[in-house]
Amino acid sequence: MKILLVDGTIVGRKTGAVLEQVKMYIQEFRPEMELDILSLADYDHQFVDGRPLGEYNDSMQDLAHRFNEADGYIIASPIFQGSIPGVLKNTFDLLHPHTMRYKPVSIVANGGTYQHHLVIENQLKPILDYFRCLVTPNYVYTHTSHFDIDNNIINEDVHDRLRELARVFVQYAEMSTHLSKETLDKH
């Protein structure tokens, strides 16, 4: 099972640090899962404007292909100005509506204020619901104070919540393998 761990920004290190930790915890529960970190910073982004996928550059086509080939996702996003980064939203806009359907997704996010956790509920979850993902009920929001100067997570409660997120994600991933994909092939 291929799981894409998406670093949904092109700046900063905290989001990537959280993903690395989640990756370690998933490996503890299910070492045979193929875990691949995808950093949006590694792509040559174009604004998505509704044209066919084949008209975007190779980098954007590769990005869409990697999403399409994955069996599940961990979406990591910083919160900027009370919102997800534009580059992450642009990536979602690139994807076909069936790309993530019935695939498991967990969310981790980080921000500078404790109130920004609501962005997950008000922005990310509705987008993922549109894609009909199997969104795990537990997400983890981290605050700047949860990291040391080298972006290591120093808060034990955060570690506990990330372990639990990984455990639940693995269960959702196993459940997703039993869902019929037949209806997808007809549409």
Rank of each mutant, 00 (worst) to 15 (best):
I79R: 04
H65K: 14
E20F: 00
D71A: 14
S39I: 06
F67K: 07
R66H: 06
P104S: 12
G112A: 15
E28L: 13
R13V: 01
G50V: 05
D36G: 04
V48P: 06
I74N: 02
A64V: 15
R30G: 07
E121Y: 01
F29V: 15
L35E: 02
T15F: 04
G54C: 09
D62A: 10
G86Q: 05
V48L: 12
V87N: 08
D58Y: 03
S39H: 14
L53H: 14
I84C: 03
R30A: 15
G54Q: 13
I120R: 10
H96G: 09
R101T: 12
P97S: 03
D62H: 10
E28R: 10
G72V: 09
I26S: 10
P31V: 12
Q123S: 00
Q81S: 05
T91Y: 03
I37G: 00
D42Y: 03
I75N: 03
R66D: 06
V119L: 04
L40G: 04
S77N: 08
F29G: 05
A70D: 10
Y25S: 07
Y102M: 13
G111M: 12
G12A: 00
K89C: 01
L88R: 03
V105D: 03
I10D: 08
D71T: 08
Q21C: 08
V119H: 02
P104G: 05
Y43P: 08
G50R: 06
I79Q: 00
L118A: 07
T99E: 01
H65Y: 13
A17N: 02
Y43Q: 05
I127Q: 05
E28W: 09
L35H: 04
V105Q: 00
D71P: 14
M24K: 15
H116N: 08
D49L: 02
T9S: 14
E69N: 10
G86I: 09
G16K: 14
A109E: 11
I127C: 00
R66P: 14
T91N: 06
P78I: 00
I26P: 07
Y102Q: 13
T15M: 12
P126H: 03
L38S: 01
V22Q: 11
H45E: 06
P31H: 09
Q81M: 13
N122W: 03
P85R: 08
Y73I: 07
L118M: 01
I75A: 07
E20Y: 05
H96F: 09
V11E: 05
S39C: 10
K89E: 06
S77P: 11
D58P: 01
E20L: 10
L128S: 09
S83Q: 05
V87E: 04
G16N: 07
S83Y: 07
L128W: 15
T15H: 08
D71G: 15
D93K: 11
L19S: 10
G12C: 07
T113V: 01
K125R: 15
L40R: 07
R66L: 13
F29T: 08
V48C: 15
D58S: 14
L53V: 14
F67P: 12
A64G: 10
Y43N: 00
S77D: 02
D62E: 15
H65F: 12
